[in-house]
Design a protein around this nucleic acid. Structure first.
Lengths: 245, 245
DNA sequence: CATTGACAGATAATCGATTATTTTTAATAG
DNA sequence: CTATTAAAAATAATCGATTATCTGTCAATG
C-alpha cells in the first residue's frame, strides 16, 4: 500500500558512481534494500517457491541483523511473495496451477477494468507515457541467454502494463494490479524462457497501446484481455510440462 | 496475504478463564496481538486518520518493545490502514472522499464478481454458512449507544459479507475483498452512527442472501451492488457534512 | 508395536542499548 | 527582517544478546 522502493527502475551501477553520491532516491534503509533483493530473488526463482526461509541462514547470507531482515520480509508479505505464521517463520509463497489461474482471472478482471477507467479518465500525459513505454519495450529484445537482458525486458514490460492503467485515478486499484503483475511475473520468469511461437507479443502490445490512446474502449479492452489470457494459457502449459499441480 | 490472526471472532474474556489456559487459537506473538489492537484502534477511530504514529510513544502506550511494535505495524501496512516511509516512520492512513469512492467502486466490482463466482461454484456448505451468518447478523441489534454492541454487529456484518463470497474458490480475490471491507468499515465506524432512515439494511442483507442461495445470479448481484452503493452514498453524505475532502 | 512424554537442539520472538537520520531550534550573515 | 547554516533534540533504524517456542529424537509405557 505504501512502502518506499521501486523494484523496477534505477539504471545505475550498484554503488552510484563517484561524483557526489547523493543517492537519496529511494531504497534507503537496510530493510528496504533487503526487500528489493529478496523480491528479485523470489521473482527470479533464485529462492525456490514454497521453500522455508531460515532467518539465521538468511541473516548470514545477506549480512544483516534480524530487525531489517524481518522488516524486508514483512514487505514481501504485503506483496504476496512470502507467507508467514506466528512462531513458524517465513516461507516463499508456493506456486500452483490454481494460483496461476486465479492470477490470470483477476488480471483479466482488474487490469481490464483499470484500462477502461484509464481510457475514460486519462489525459494527454497518460497517452504520451504509454507511447513512450511501448517504444522502449519494443526496442528491447528479450534474449533468454543473457539474464541481464531478460531482467531489463521484464522491468520494461511491467512498466508498460502499469503505464497502460496509470490513468485510472484509482491508487488502490493500481496497487492490486501491481501485486498481480508481480505474482504473474514470477511464473513467467521461472517457467517461460521462450514465448510461444504463434504469438507476436510486440504486436499485441502495440495493438493494446494504439487502441488505448485512440480511446477505442472495446477494442483495447478485448486486446488486453486476450493478451493476459494467452500469457496465462502459455504459462499453464509450461507448468503442466513440469508436472506442477 | 497470510498472517496469523482473526480480528473477527473469539467470544471470550480477555484472559481465557482459569481452567487450563490452552489459548493456542491464534494471535500468539506480541506482534500479532499488537496488530489486532492497533487495527481495532484505527478502525474504531481511536487513532485519528492521517495522524503520525510515534514509535516511542506507542511503545510506552502498549508496553512493548520496538521489534513487536514494528512487526504489528507492518501487518497494518498490508491492510492499507497504515502508511510508511523510510526514516520517516508510520502514520495512520488518511481518509478522503476520493478514497471512500474508490473503495466503494472497487467493492462493487470485486465483491460482486466474487459473489457471482460463489454462486457458480459454491457448495451446500457455502449456502448453509450464508444462512447462519445472516441469521446471527439479523438477530443482533446495532445500538449506537453501547460500543460493545456496535463492535459485535460490525464483526457479524463483516463475517456475513465475507461468507457471501467465500464460495468463490479464489483466495487472492477474498484477500482483496477483505482489505476493502476493512477500509470501508473504518469509514462506517468513524462517521456513521445511524443508518439512513430510508434503508432497511436487514432486509437488504436477507434479499442478497436469499438470492445467492437460490443461485439467482442477476438478482443477487444487483442487490449486493445496490447495497454497497447505498452504503457508499450514505457515507459520502456524512463525510460531506463533516467537511472532508 | 504403537503411543506418549521428556529432553535437546534448532529456530523464532523479544528486549535494551547503540547508531543513523530527520526535524527543530538558534545563531549569524546578508 | 529573511534566508542560511550549525548545533541540538527528537525520532527511526539497527545491532547483539536473551528469552520463548517449536521440532525431532528416543526412551518408557501400555
Amino acid at each position: 500500500m505504501s512502502s518506499t522502493d521501486d523494484s523496477a527502475s534505477a539504471p545505475m551501477t550498484d554503488e552510484e558512481t563517484a561524483s557526489a553520491g547523493f543517492s537519496d532516491d529511494g531504497k534507503n534503509t537496510i530493510g528496504s534494500q533487503l526487500a528489493s533483493r529478496l523480491r528479485e530473488a523470489i521473482i527470479s526463482g533464485e529462492l525456490e517457491a514454497g521453500s522455508k526461509i531460515n532467518l539465521d541462514k538468511a541473516r548470514r547470507t545477506f549480512n544483516v541483523s534480524l530487525s531489517p531482515l524481518r522488516e524486508g520480509l514483512a514487505r514481501l508479505i504485503s506483496d504476496g511473495l512470502v507467507e508467514f505464521q506466528d512462531n513458524r517463520g517465513y516461507r516463499v509463497a508456493p506456486i500452483s496451477l490454481a494460483n496461476l489461474e486465479e492470477i490470470t482471472t483477476l488480471r483479466e478482471e482488474l487490469e481490464v477494468f483499470a484500462l477502461r477507467e484509464s481510457m475514460r479518465l486519462g489525459d494527454v500525459e497518460w497517452e504520451s507515457n504509454i507511447m513512450r513505454s511501448l517504444h522502449r519495450l519494443n526496442r528491447t529484445d528479450r534474449d533468454a541467454s543473457r539474464p541481464e537482458t531478460l531482467e531489463q525486458w521484464e522491468a520494461l514490460h511491467r512498466e508498460f502494463h502499469l503505464t497502460l492503467i496509470s490513468g485510472c485515478g484509482k491508487p488502490l486499484l493500481l496497487h492490486f494490479c501491481g501485486l498481480l503483475l508481480n505474482l504473474n511475473d514470477r511464473y513467467r520468469r521461472v517457467f517461460l524462457i521462450r514465448t510461444s511461437g504463434d504469438r507476436n507479443v510486440g504486436q499485441e502490445h502495440s495493438e493494446i497501446a494504439q487502441g488505448a490512446v485512440a480511446r477505442d474502449i472495446e477494442y483495447a479492452s478485448e486486446k488486453l484481455r486476450q493478451h493476459i489470457h494467452r500469457t496465462g494459457t502459455n504459462l499453464r502449459n509450461h507448468l503442466a510440462t513440469k508436472g506442477i499441480v
